[in-house]
Design a protein around this nucleic acid. Sequence first.
DNA 1: AACTCACTCAACCGCCTACAT
DNA 2: TATGTAGGCGGTTGAGTGAGT
Length: 240
Amino acid sequence: FLFSTNVMGKIPCCDKNGLKRGPWTPEEDKKLIDYIQKHGHGRWRTLPKNAGLKRCGKSCRLRWANYLRPDIKRGRFSFEEEEIIIQLHSVLGNKWSAIASRLPGRTDNEIKNYWNTHIRKRLLRMGIDPVTHTPRLDLLELSSAICSTLYNSSSPHNPQINVPNLLGIGPIMDPDLLNLATTFLSCQQNQIGFSQINQTQFQSQLTQASQIQNPVQEIQSCTTSNTLNVPFLSYRVLQM
DNA sequence: AACTCACTCAACCGCCTACAT
DNA sequence: TATGTAGGCGGTTGAGTGAGT
């Protein structure tokens, strides 16, 4: 169908020139493919006119790059591809085109969509910040603080409460890990080198916990003011 | 069957950078 | 050097669709 109205609340450049927007028809796809196979894409700005398309150059480029290119790999991402994406994202961040360049047949748009709809959510459920690729210690700190307060004041009339569940964040990690994380945070705040405590133990438990814990509910905000500069390596994403 | 809700992903926009003039 | 243009990128949107009630 045609986007005759401005559905996104903005004035699209194509409308100004009377150009078509929205989903591509098979006929348009064929025109674009035929033209590029014969002439190459050349200058995207002049391509639509030469190819007989009422589209802007940007739209043609995007359609070709993300959908019509012959070397595009279709279908679900393999586990190996997923791991590569996570590893590259931990290094490159949201540089989707850079990530895509290392995954033959995959487009930046496809990887970006897959990250936002699958991987990001899965990392959050595992208690891992998808931006920093580190454990979400903001949650650990909050949960630990409330737990310790309530446990200290518990009595026969005050049965122990599952604080993380009450907070809607579910079980995060086991108590030992929670203590280690709290220690780590404390060291950070006191400018003490964590390596002086037990970094190896901490990291190994984090890795272990990320592999065995049950999924926890996703929290809306994933930004943290308490991010660590410790790369959270060697975790594997749980298949669901 | 009808409706609601959540999820997916193609397509768009605005911004940025590289390059030409 | 300043300005204009084209192409590329990342963030966002919303139609389509399937699952659940």
